[in-house]
C-alpha cells in the first residue's frame, strides 16, 4: 500500500501543471524584458542625428533657461527625444510701419528667438526620422520640456551626423 501511495505522489498532477505554467511565464517575461531590447538594438538601423528647433518671441524672463546638456522630453508622450547641444538666443524682430508707409524691421525690446540644436539617436522605420519612436520632421511643432523650461518649438531642420 505504501508503494502504491508513493507512485501516486510522484504522478504529474494539477499543481505541477500550474507551477510549470507559472515558471514558463516568468521565464518568458524575463526573456522579453531583458533579451528583446538587446536583439532589437542589434538588428536596428539607428544612427545619430542633429535637429534644430526654433521658438520665436520668448520673453526676457526665459532667457538662458534652455542650456547645453538638457535632456529634451516631448510633453505629450513623455518620450525623451535627445539632448541639447546648443541654445542660441537672439533678439526677436519687430516689424513696424512708418508714417510714410515704409516697413521697418528692428529688434523687439525684451523678446528673444531661441534656436536649439538637439542631438539624438534616430531610426528610419517608415521613411522618416524617428527618435525614440517619435517622428521628427522639419516644419513640425514639438511640445517639449527641459528641466527649466516648457514650451513649443518648430523643427526647422534635421540631418544625420557623419561619424
Amino acid at each position: 500500500m505504501d508503494q502504491e501511495k508513493t507512485a501516486k505522489n510522484k504522478r504529474f498532477n494539477f499543481v505541477d501543471a500550474i507551477l510549470l505554467i507559472i515558471i514558463l511565464a516568468i521565464v518568458g517575461i524575463v526573456i522579453y524584458t531583458s533579451v528583446a531590447p538587446i536583439t532589437k538594438q542589434m538588428f536596428s538601423n539607428s544612427f545619430e542625428v542633429e535637429y534644430v528647433m526654433q521658438i520665436r518671441g520668448v520673453r526676457r524672463e526665459f532667457n538662458n533657461k534652455i542650456t547645453e546638456g538638457d535632456r529634451v522630453v516631448e510633453t505629450e508622450t513623455l518620450k525623451q527625444i535627445g539632448t541639447v547641444t546648443r541654445a542660441v538666443y537672439s533678439a526677436s524682430k519687430f516689424v513696424g510701419t512708418a508714417s510714410d508707409g515704409r516697413t521697418v524691421t528692428s529688434d523687439y525690446p525684451g523678446m528673444y528667438d531661441v534656436t536649439i540644436t538637439v542631438r539624438a539617436t534616430a531610426e528610419m522605420p517608415a521613411g522618416m526620422y524617428e527618435v525614440n519612436s517619435f517622428p521628427i520632421t522639419a516644419g513640425k511643432t514639438i511640445p517639449f520640456r527641459v528641466p527649466d523650461f516648457i514650451g513649443e518649438a518648430v523643427c526647422v531642420s534635421i540631418s544625420e551626423v557623419k561619424s
Binding site: 513696424g96 521697418v104 528692428s106 525684451g110
Partner: peptide
Amino acid sequence: IVEANDSGLPVE
C-alpha cells in the same frame, strides 16, 4: 505694451 512709432520703431 509695445507699439510702433511714426518711424516704425518699437516703443514701450
